[in-house]
Every structure is written in C-alpha cells, then in structure tokens.
Design a protein around this nucleic acid. Structure first.
Lengths: 259, 259
DNA sequence: CGAGGTTCTCGACCAATAGACGAAAACAAT
DNA sequence: ATTGTTTTCGTCTATTGGTCGAGAACCTCG
C-alpha cells in the first residue's frame, strides 16, 4: 500500500468480445444455442454466439447486434449480463476480454437458424471452444436461481399459457418436479400472473379445459417480499436514521476537495 | 438474420479498466471507499479505486493489484464481480470498458489510506466521476440481497463477534431493524455460524456477557434451501429424466460437426 | 346418451420458516 | 441486596408453500 499518483482512468488497449448464452425450453428440454466453429482456433468445437465489440456500441447493443446474425432477436424475451472473463490465456493468441450475457427465448418459438447453428440439450453439451461451456453453466445457474425470486418465468413462456404448460417449463429449467397447483398459488399471490379469462380446448382424451394465464409484466422484477431478514412488519418506519449528523467524510484528504 | 461467416473471436481493440466498490460498516454506517480526482477529466469529483487492465493479468488479479494501492488488501474479506459497463460515452475521450467489483472490509478494521482517499457514508454520497455512483448503488444492492440468501455476513464481521454486534452490521447494511434473536436463530439453523465458547465481558453498566460466535466458513456460500419452488420433499428422486433418448442436437448443421 | 377416463381447478390440511415478545439469566453499579 | 442493563431462551403466531383429495369440465367409446 503506497501513496498513489492519481491515475488516468484509461486502461491498456485490449480486445473485447461479447458472448451470449441463449436458452430455450425445446420440447421439454432446456437447450442452448451454439454454433460450430469451422476454423482455428478451436475448430470443430461448438461456441457461443457473439463477437468483437465495435467502438461505437455499448455492450448490450453489441450482443443484440451479433445475436441478430443467429436468431430473430424479436424472439428474445430477456437479456441480462452474466459475467466477464479476462484471463490472459482464455483464448490462444491475442488477449481478449469477454462479457457474457444470458438470453432467453420463449418455449414454442422456433426461429430460423443459420446452417452452422443448432440447439443443444443443456445436460448433454458437446465439446465447446475456449471457456464457453463454463459460461453456459453459469447461465443455467442464473436462470434457475432467478426463477425462484423474480418473475423471470415470463421469458420462458409466450404471453398466453396454461398452468400445466408453465409448470412444465419450470420443471425443465429447474430439473425437478414442479407442482402446477403450487406454482399457480405462488405466482398468483405474488401478483406475477393473472388469468386472461380464456380457456384452451383440451387435447384428445379429454380433460377439463385449462385456464389461460399471462404474466402481468414481461420485464424482470424481483419479488420484493422475497428477502429473508425482512424489515419488521409492525412499524413501517424502521428505517435506520443516520446515527450522527456529522460530516459524511471521516477523513478530509490532504490534496482534497476542500472547495 | 443472415448466414454468418464464422468470425474470429478477436474483438476490436479498446481500453479496459477495473473498478471496485469497497464497502465497510464504519461506526454503524455503511461506507464506500472513494478517492478524489485532482486532474481532468472529471477533476474535483470522487471516484472508485481501480485503473487500467494490464495485458498479463486477469480481471480479478488486476483489481486486487490496484486496490493494494488504496487499502491493505489483506483486510478484504470478499471480492466479487458486479457488472461491466461499455457505453461509448461513459468516459470522455477514449472508449473505455469498465468491469466493476464489489469488495468488503470487516467492521472494526481500519486500514491506513493514502491522502486522497477516504470513506464516505453510502447514503450521502458526494458528486462522483463518470458512472461511478451508479456502480456504488449496484454494489450496495448486491450486498443487501446477498445478506439474505448467502453467508455473506462473514465479510462484514471479524472472525469473532457477538450477536448484537452482528445484528448491528446487518442493520447498517440493510437499512432497517434486525432482531438479534431472530438473526441468531436463522444463522444457526442454516449452519452459517457457531459459538466459539468464549464470552465477552459486558461494558460499563452491566449486562449479561455475550457469547462469541464465528462464521463456519468465510467464503461465499448460498443457502441451498433458499429457493422457492423447492424440489418436492417426499421422493428424493424427482430428477427430470431426459424425456427422449434421441440425439441432443435437433438440427445437424450443414457445414456441421458430423465427424 | 350415459359410463368411464383424463385433465384441470379448488380447497383443506400440515410442516417449516421466521417475526414478535416476554421471561429469565448474568453481570455492573450503587 | 437492589436496581438497571444486556443477552439469551422459549413461546406464540402469521405466512409461506408442499401435499393431497374431491369435484369440475371435457373427451371417447359403446
């Protein structure tokens, strides 16, 4: 720890790429969108869609632009940043920092794909290039956690769905049984979903017609009551007051901001 | 959506910097470590510690190295990636992508600081440079959420603490009342803390001597039962079997991996 | 058209979690 | 010894969510 000379915020030049883990439930299987690398380095392996960052675009703009080459981006119902990786040897050759995103496509959508691109079951991933498999697993993990404490389910389903369909999506994404009755009660209580009033005709073999639901909002919201260590229920004013009305700065720097 | 020519994963050259939101509970106030910018751009504003990424270091190595200039890094009990920002205009002049980290220092530690560096109360932040204030708020939010569903409390306290002290840290970080009794029961049940057997002498004025506790592990762990939409309790084997033992790849690319 | 089968909906029951609160324990000061 | 303070422990209760069964609505087939 030494006294520092105020450094400029300008970093060293390096390459930057953005990657996307695009997930979709396809016929009951959580699947990831991958493309096949025909050329070195790591030719013959599967990779995440993405590519270099252009100087005039933000990270989010960049991944949207590059995803547009693989899949109809209008199908994308959610896109959030996952993680950035900067290990010097993560790709051979030049130093490349990567920022990974998680994208979701609702079940049922079937966007056309380029010839080198395909969906892969998430529990039987092929040999993947660089550190991309690690990012895929991070994306799956992120999806699983957020299904619990956010309304992220909206991104797995189209606007209209029955409770058994939705339970199936949750089942596929989480990897364990999900009871449609419980799911309905939970999401209704949280105010995440609401019935549209419509019902859907039963399939052959009969059955009671299923009510159609929709998510009330289709942008990410965290379930606010979803915190252990809640604020106390009784007094709505349990905010912590600033303990001492002194200066917010405990130490005034020598070469400091004293006007 | 067009057929894509397999692109090299090499992105365009740009600058990359790493920043850290370092938080600590200082005399009951959640505070952030900032340094004062004496030079342009944004001179006279407070900024996050950090700086340019060197070509031979990972993102995490880089932020540790640069933090070492501001604070004794041995005091850092936690360090995790927060977010990356790449808006072309986030800093004037050259294009700089920033990766933000969240660092935590346990209450009570008082590392020496360079002259231009100081702790600031998190609820009265000064005018900050660039988009740094936004990162600080993201860091605080991350801390608050993770206090609920992980053992991140270990990073706020030293290895030995009493329950009232720990409740005070949670109170300061969360911004609302936290009952020491409930906190004790919750953390004990989760297996996050354990009593050391020691007690601490009461202060002047008396009081029952407080038992000393410690976190069982001081690395981040998520509370595993902490998922709504639990797997069913009854049958431990509720894994979803692969629905159909077909090929994992639904579409075989034309220029594809067919050996 | 009725019987049986299927799927969905709804409500009741129950276990676990955690906020609220008061009583008891252990200590200091007088 | 009495009083006051802080911590600890146990109980009560509200809420959440998993389980289960009864009933509703529909199909198919005879």
């Amino acid at each position: 720890m030494t006294v520092v000379t105020p450094t400029s915020p300008v970093g060293q030049a390096c390459d930057h790429e953005v990657l996307a883990v695009v997930l979709q439930i396809r016929s009951g299987v959580l699947s990831a969108l991958l493309w096949w690398r025909a050329f070195a380095p790591d030719a013959g392996r599967w990779a995440l869609p993405g590519g270099g960052l252009r100087p005039d675009e933000s990270l989010r703009d960049s991944i949207r632009r590059q995803l547009a080459e693989k899949v109809d981006v209008r199908e994308l119902t959610h896109l959030e940043q996952l993680d950035s990786r900067g290990e010097p040897d993560r790709v051979p050759g030049r130093r490349v920092v990567a920022t990974g995103y998680l994208g979701l496509v609702p079940a049922g959508a079937d966007p056309g794909l380029p010839g080198d691109t395909a969906w892969h079951s998430s529990d039987r991933l092929p040999r993947m290039a660089f550190d991309h498999e690690d990012l895929v697993r991070a994306g799956i993990q992120r999806l699983r956690s957020k299904l619990s404490y956010t309304n992220l389910g909206f991104a797995l389903a189209q606007p209209g769905f029955t409770m058994s369909e939705l339970a199936g999506y949750y089942r596929s994404a989480l990897g364990h049984e999900v009871d449609a009755t419980n799911l309905q009660r939970i999401l209704l209580r949280r105010g995440q979903i609401e019935p549209t009033g419509d019902t859907v005709r039963p399939g052959r073999g009969g059955g009671r017609p299923a009510a159609v639901y929709r998510f009330r909002t289709r942008v990410l919201e965290v379930t606010d009551e979803f915190a252990v260590l809640h604020p106390p229920r009784r007094s709505p004013e349990h905010r912590i007051p600033p303990p001492v009305p002194s200066l917010s700065t405990e130490r005034v720097p020598d070469a400091g901001p004293g006007h």
